[in-house]
Each structure stands twice: as C-alpha cells, then as structure tokens.
C-alpha cells in the first residue's frame, strides 16, 4: 500500500496537466480563498455591528443553529435547484461556493461578534472620551482587541471550507476532492489515499499559516504572550476558542457559542 502510494506521488503524470497535483491544489486554494473572501465581506460587518450595538443578537444565534443542517445535503439540494438554471461550468461552481460560504459565515460571524462584544467597555468608553471618532474606535480599539476571537473564527471557517470543498467534488467541483471522488468511482484506492493525504496536508499548512498570522497580528498584551496575564482571561478565551472551532468536513455546531456560554 505504502509502496503504491509512494509510486503515485513519484509518477510525473500525476504532477502535470489538468488533474495534476499543482492544478488541483491551486483550484482548491482558489475556491477556499473566494469563499472566505465572500464570507468575510458578509460576516465581518454584520458581526461587528451586532457586537458593537448589541442589537439583533439572534442573527448570530440563528446562524449557529443553521450549522445543524448537514452540508452534504445542502450541497446536493442547492446544486439540484440551481444547476439546471445555469449552463457552463458555473453550474456546479456557484452552488458549491454558495454552500461553502454558508458554512464559513457562522464561525466568522460568531468570532467577530464575540470578539467585538468582549472588548472592555471601559476601554471603549475611554477611547471615545478622548476624542476618537466612531471609525477610529472601531479600527484602533475594537478590532485589534477582537482579533484573537475573530482569528479563531477564521481558522475554523478555513478548515471547514478546505474540508468541505473536498466533499463538493461529488457535485463535480474541481480541487483535491476530485482524487477522492474519482478514485472512488474507478476503485483506485491509491489515488483516494493520495488525495486524502494532500487534503490533510493542505489543511495542516493552512492552519499553521493562520496560527502564525495570529502570533504576528495579535498584540502580546491580549494574547497573553507578554507573560503574566490574568488566568481567568486566558481561560475564558480558550473556552471561546474551543466552541468556535468546529470543523471537519460538513461539520456543524448548534450548541454553546462562546457568547451564549459567556453569559451563563
């Protein structure tokens, strides 16, 4: 088995052409990036607004409850609805991206919301009291303070999208999922395993990159890297993290968003 797998990776044929590894990885990354971009544009302003004003919290709760819908089913249902309406490749790209966006929005929304909401009200008060304008308060105080929770939302959204994009191969989307689905169809087990290894690696690398970004972007004053930081704070953050990061393919989360739990 391992020998066959190595042979697969050594075979130059698997590294070139439209189903070569570089192309598939690039496709996979492209879907992920497009999805995340759209999801960010939707989720961050809404999350920031809800966190800032404290109004319409049900948006966040609702988005989280929607995670109970199995992604695979949604993917099939949407492609069957939309597919026939569109000619060309977009017939499976659009439904897939739409479902992936739907999947990425809840963690980003809860992350942004919980992050902004967790900003010390006194810091916010001091900021406007010293003459910062609304957008200065947002950019200079609220967003930097919200960064850890936002980034953990981004990490779990990224993982879910990478994982679920694999599943979307079953509705003819390109990317690494093709190796799994095509391998299944042609009973080429080696190809399936190779694809799985690649997806797992891609997920690990993406998570690693985001973890680095987190180290670099989050102020040590918040992340606790500046040595002694109140224990309670570290704990509550960790708790929020664990509830936000929900993730492998088609994963969902209904219960205990960080905000809900913070309140009890």
């Amino acid at each position: 088995m391992n020998g066959a797998l190595l042979d697969w990776f050594r075979d130059p044929a698997n590294w070139t052409g439209p189903d070569g590894v570089p192309t598939r990885v690039a496709e996979h990354l492209r879907y992920t990036a497009v999805t995340l971009l759209i999801a960010l544009v939707i989720a961050v302003p809404i999350g920031a607004w809800v966190g800032h004003t404290g109004r319409m919290r049900w948006l966040v709760t609702g988005a989280n409850a929607a995670r109970a819908v199995p992604t695979l089913g949604l993917l099939f249902a949407v492609s069957m609805l939309v597919g026939p309406l569109i000619k060309s490749d977009l017939a499976f790209v659009i439904p897939s991206i739409a479902v992936l966006v739907l999947l990425a929005v809840p963690p980003l929304l809860s992350g942004t919301y919980a992050g902004i909401e967790s900003v010390d009200p006194e810091a916010r008060d001091a900021a406007s009291g010293m003459g910062m304008t609304g957008s200065q308060v947002l950019w200079q105080v609220e967003l930097p303070c919200a960064l850890p929770l936002f980034l953990s939302g981004l990490r779990s959204a990224t993982l879910q999208v990478i994982a679920t994009a694999t599943v979307a191969a079953s509705v003819s989307l390109g990317g690494l999922g093709r190796y799994l689905i095509d391998g299944l169809a042609s009973r080429d087990y080696t190809q399936m395993v190779a694809g799985s290894v690649l997806v797992a690696l891609l997920a690990l690398v993406a998570d690693g990159v985001l973890a680095l970004l987190e180290r670099y972007a989050v102020s040590p004053g918040i992340s606790g890297r500046a040595s002694r930081v109140a224990r309670t704070r570290a704990t509550s953050r960790a708790t929020a993290d664990s509830t936000l990061s929900v993730g492998p393919a088609g994963a969902t989360a209904l219960a205990g968003t960080s905000s809900e739990r913070d309140r009890t």
Binding site: R67, T71, L72, G73, T243, A253, A255, G256
Partner: peptide
C-alpha cells in the same frame, strides 16, 4: 458538567453532520 455539556452539544451536532459524509464512501 455545564461546560463539558456545552462542548458535548457542539460535538454531537457536528458528529451528526459529519457522519452523513460517510455515505460518499
């Protein structure tokens, strides 16, 4: 228990969704 239960709820809902993916194989 309350914290663990909250985590279990997340895991349960997540599991139900992921298991459905196994139908692909």
């Amino acid at each position: 228990i309350p914290v663990v239960a909250a985590g279990l709820r997340v895991a349960a809902v997540s599991n139900v969704s992921i298991v459905s993916v196994a139908s692909l194989i």
